[in-house]
């Protein structure tokens, strides 16, 4: 049995997440990935913003910083600049990272700073009660769109890829074992890494859209998932409503803190 307890602040349990929420699966997957890399708890700084996923920093026994809505990546950038040797991980959600904090998300990717972002995409603002987020699919209901969204959505992984990240992958809470490997690769990667995890919110998204229980929604994720390989031979029509999973980007690119250090050494004539 994997010993999760050694990474958790047990006195902070139980978790606040609702029954059927997928966030706990991501938490455990992340802990397994960290364990496989063999990082000590002191080597990790975990930063979060505001929202359901961001509550995670309260539960893990790393160096943790719980910040303001949308700004986790900006705070993490500061941490990484001062402590480039530290493994800096941001936990955030679709609303936090791509609406109110969208600017920081694309600029950290552009800079390619060595931070790993675990982005919980549940298609909604869960904590505040189901408002439309930038990933609420067209036509789906939200508390601020009771007759369905009339807005287009962001492709979160696509954004990071276009902005210049070193590593971009999308997984689901159904494929938790694959997710472990993806998170592990993302953390090991020197550069800006994003793992977008599709996770169900039965309370604020599922119920309003009649998607069933958390388990039903996870099963649906399984049905809807299509690997990148398979997707490459499918038409746009066939891909409509599907979740393409896998690693989109995995390349070696100059990293920001390393470049910064090089400049310092160059100017100091070392």
């Amino acid at each position: 049995m994997f010993d999760y307890d050694k990474y958790l602040r047990l006195n902070k349990l139980p978790l606040i997440w609702c029954a059927g929420c997928g966030d706990g699966i991501v938490l455990k997957s992340m802990l397994r990935a960290i364990d496989r890399i063999g990082l000590s708890k002191d080597e990790i700084c975990m930063v979060s913003g505001i929202g359901c996923s961001s509550r995670l920093t309260g539960y893990v026994d790393f160096n943790t910083l719980h910040t303001t809505h949308g700004r986790a990546i900006a705070f993490a950038t500061g941490v990484k600049m001062v402590k480039p040797e530290m493994t800096v991980i941001v936990v955030t959600g679709d609303g936090d990272a791509t609406a109110i904090g969208g600017n920081h998300y694309i600029h950290a990717a552009r800079r390619n700073i060595d931070i790993t972002v675990i982005l919980f995409n549940n298609n909604i603002y869960g904590m505040t009660g189901g408002q439309l987020s930038p990933t609420t699919p067209f036509g789906f209901k939200a508390s601020t769109a009771p007759f369905g969204s009339v807005e287009n959505t962001f492709n979160i992984s696509g954004l990071a890829e276009a902005a210049g990240a070193s590593f971009v992958g999308r997984g689901t809470v159904y494929d938790a074992i694959k997710l472990d490997r993806m998170i592990e690769k993302a953390i090991r990667k020197k550069g800006f890494s994003v793992v977008e995890v599709m996770t169900p919110c039965p309370t604020a998204f599922g119920r309003r859209n009649r998607l069933g229980s958390g388990a039903d929604m996870i099963k649906q994720l399984k049905e809807d998932s299509v690997s990148i390989e398979k997707a490459s031979s499918m038409t746009a029509e066939e891909l409509n409503g599907k979740v393409v999973t896998g690693i989109f980007v995995d390349k070696e690119l100059p990293e920001y803190t390393a470049n910064y250090q090089k400049l310092i050494e160059q100017l100091q004539g070392r």
Partner: peptide, 26 residues
């Protein structure tokens, strides 16, 4: 949050003539 939820419902029910803008931050 609930204040604007309630207002969004009035909006969806056609009880106001308001243009409702769902923005991305305060």
């Amino acid at each position: 949050t609930e204040l604007m939820h309630q207002f969004a419902e009035f909006h969806s029910d056609g009880l106001v003539d308001t243009e409702l803008v769902l923005v991305e931050s305060e």
